[in-house]
Design a protein around this nucleic acid. Structure first.
Lengths: 225, 225
DNA sequence: CGTAATTTTAAGCAAATTTTAAGCTTCCCC
DNA sequence: GGGGAAGCTTAAAATTTGCTTAAAATTACG
């Protein structure tokens, strides 16, 4: 997760950068509106934190320009002003949330997380480790090379990845992927797990689908316990 | 390219629809703000044309709501008012451009093209491999020899090339190229894919349209992964 | 108004996908 | 170690999907 902070006071900017890097964010800083806007337009950030009162170009103007360029990145405003009018102005300019100075770092963190969660919900791409899938275009990538799947194979993989780090029982899989709601003694899941494993292995993804005997299957995010 | 016109005067709306369809746009019309907003939020348009003065919900409010929903679609305002204040208001609400009534159709067309070009920067040189198409003159070239396509064939090819390296699903194709929004079991896409393939193959472009079974089609830029 | 071009529909055929079924392997418990 | 259950693999049958063609319907144009 990569953030850009546009803030002219070096003290506040540094404090935020340190704190956020401790939370494993990658943080860039711009000390005025103009260079901030340039950075925001050139790079792909997951979120912008913009102070209202900054030199060269006001925070609100930066916000407007970013939106005008068609960039939907979440924007969080820092403001000392707290009249209703100012907040409305900020949100109308395209900001997603605001926080009043002085603020608790914990509150800022919470609001950042809310925005990033919202972002992920709207996001088209799901992933697990090296593997990423796009439900909109029905494409699967292992790193940069594409894996061609049939529709059923794709649906099964999508379900497993949407529920990664959770065990998917056979009955849930048969319900959600095959839309079968009564018990049946089909072995179609086994067959498709075999198909998927073969294609994923061939593409270099390894055997990321684990069997939970007697229950179902699970895809784990590598590096999580 | 799919447009939505929100305009309460049937005369103007019809005039615009006819003219734009001659330019091979797929055009929807809404006659008041509320139904226009619904359409804009439900469907995926490439551009909205909104009159300022419309019943049920003002154009500016529609604009604001669309932006609030995080939709960055280019918006072009039609307005009889022309004071600086009104224009500023419109642009602040999230519009990208405006045009004063009465206007020349040619000027409207030019402004639409500007917005669509901004949308994907490399607009003037739409190409995939040896194939290049010109949306303005409706010409297709394979190297230096021209390929003559019918309007529907052209629209389909244009859509595929605008979305090159992405899978175009059957439902998206039927929506954007045929402007059909309900499910139907037509096989018209298959037929046109066959037409296109035959003409492209004959012109020496090879078979650049790949089938993604169960999903749709894709044109890949050669040399990309 | 009639002809030509374009678009759509429909049907047969081919190919890929999905399902079924059977034999084989692995794991677990006794 | 043996028996049985669960899962894996493979091959073939059943089904679905897409391709192609021809003809019908619609539209454009002189």
């Amino acid at each position: 997760m990569r953030l850009l902070i546009i803030e002219d006071e070096p003290g506040i900017a540094g404090f935020l950068k340190d704190g956020l890097e401790e939370e494993y964010f990658a943080v860039d800083i711009a000390y005025d509106g103009k260079s901030g806007l340039d950075l925001a337009l050139i790079n792909e950030y997951d979120l912008l934190i913009i102070d209202w009162m900054i030199p060269a170009l006001s925070g609100i103007e930066v916000c407007r320009q970013v939106r005008k360029a068609g960039n939907p990145v979440p924007i969080l405003f820092l403001t000392a002003k707290d009249t209703v009018e100012d907040v409305v102005f900020g949100l109308e300019a395209g900001a997603n949330d605001y926080i009043k100075k002085p603020f608790e770092f914990e509150e800022l963190l919470a609001r950042i997380r809310v925005q990033l969660r919202n972002k992920n919900q709207n996001d088209d791409s799901l992933s697990a480790g090296i593997l990423s899938i796009n439900p909109v275009t029905h494409q699967v990538f292992c790193g940069s090379n594409e894996i061609i799947l049939t529709p059923k194979e794709f649906a099964l993989l999508e379900y497993l990845i949407r529920n990664k780090d959770r065990v998917c029982t056979r009955s849930r899989i048969i319900e959600h992927v095959w839309d079968i709601h009564f018990d049946s003694d089909t072995s179609v899941i086994d067959v498709y797990i075999t198909f998927l494993r073969r294609k994923l292995e061939a593409a270099g993804a390894g055997n990321i689908i684990q069997t939970i005997r007697g229950v179902g299957y699970i895809i784990r995010e590598p590096g999580m316990s």
